[in-house]
C-alpha cells in the first residue's frame, strides 16, 4: 500500500458514488417502505378478519354498507392511478403542462375518495356504527381510517409536487420524484382494492 494521504483523490469528489445496483437510492427506499407498509395493512386486515362474523350486537358493518356508493369512490381512486401514470409519462416526456393537469387530476380523484369516506363515516356513525360500539365498528373504522390517512398523505404529496410544477421547479430531470410519489400512490390504491374486496364485497 502506498502512501497517498497527502495527495487529493484523482477523480472529482462526489458524495453519492455510483450505486451498486444502478437503481436510485430513494426508489429503493420507497420499495422497502412499501414492503413494510404491506405488513402494516396486513396486520390491520387480519385484525378485521379475526372478528368478521363474530361481531356482537348491532349495527355491524354489513348492516350499514352501501356497496354501490362505495364502489363509486373506489372507482374514483382506481381512475386516479391512471391519471398518475399519465402524469409520470408527461414529465418523462418533459411535458410540464400535462404533468400539472394530471397531478391535479390524481389529487382531485383522491379528494373525491376522501370526501366519500368522510361522508360514509358520518353516515355510518349516524346509523350507530361507532368506534367503540363493537368489534365490527372498531376494526372497520381503524382499518379504513388508516387507509384514508395514507391517501390523505398521498394527496398532500401530490399537491406539493403540483405546487413545485406551478412554480417552475419541475423538469424532466426530476421525473424520479414523480415516479416515487406514483409508487406510493399505486400502492395505496392496490391496498384499497384488497380492503374493498375483503371488507365490503366478500359475503360472510
Amino acid at each position: 500500500m502506498q502512501q497517498v494521504a497527502s495527495a487529493p483523490p484523482a477523480h472529482p469528489p462526489t458524495h453519492v458514488e455510483e450505486p451498486s445496483t444502478g437503481l436510485n437510492n430513494r426508489k429503493v427506499l420507497m420499495w422497502a417502505f412499501l414492503g413494510s407498509d404491506c405488513m402494516f395493512f396486513g396486520a390491520l386486515i387480519v385484525s378485521y378478519l379475526v372478528y368478521r362474523g363474530r361481531w356482537q350486537g348491532h349495527p355491524v358493518p354489513t348492516d350499514v354498507f352501501d356497496i354501490p356508493y362505495t364502489s363509486v369512490s373506489a372507482f374514483a381512486l382506481l381512475m386516479s392511478s391512471l391519471a398518475m401514470v399519465l402524469a409520470l409519462a408527461a414529465i418523462q416526456r418533459g411535458d410540464i403542462r400535462r404533468l400539472k393537469i394530471w397531478l391535479l387530476t390524481t389529487a382531485g380523484l383522491g379528494l373525491v375518495f376522501i370526501g366519500g369516506q368522510i361522508f360514509e363515516f358520518t353516515t355510518f356513525g349516524h346509523e350507530g356504527l361507532t368506534l367503540g360500539g363493537n368489534t365490527g365498528g372498531t376494526t372497520f373504522f381503524v382499518l379504513t381510517g388508516f387507509h384514508g390517512a395514507h391517501v390523505s398523505l398521498g394527496i398532500a404529496w401530490l399537491l406539493s409536487l403540483f405546487v413545485q410544477a406551478v412554480r417552475g421547479q419541475m423538469a424532466q430531470a426530476r421525473s424520479l420524484d414523480v415516479e416515487i410519489a406514483g409508487l406510493y400512490w399505486h400502492f395505496v390504491d392496490i391496498v384499497w382494492i384488497i380492503i374493498f374486496t375483503v371488507v365490503y364485497l366478500i359475503p360472510i
Partner: peptide, 25 residues
C-alpha cells in the same frame, strides 16, 4: 425489522385506541 415492526405498530395502535378512545380490539 422492516417486516416485523409494522405488526407491533398496529398492535400498539389498537391498544392505544382501546385505552384512549374506547375501541374494543
Amino acid at each position: 425489522i422492516v417486516l416485523a415492526f409494522p405488526v407491533i405498530a398496529v398492535a400498539l395502535i389498537e391498544l392505544m385506541f382501546d385505552r384512549l378512545f374506547g375501541s374494543t380490539f
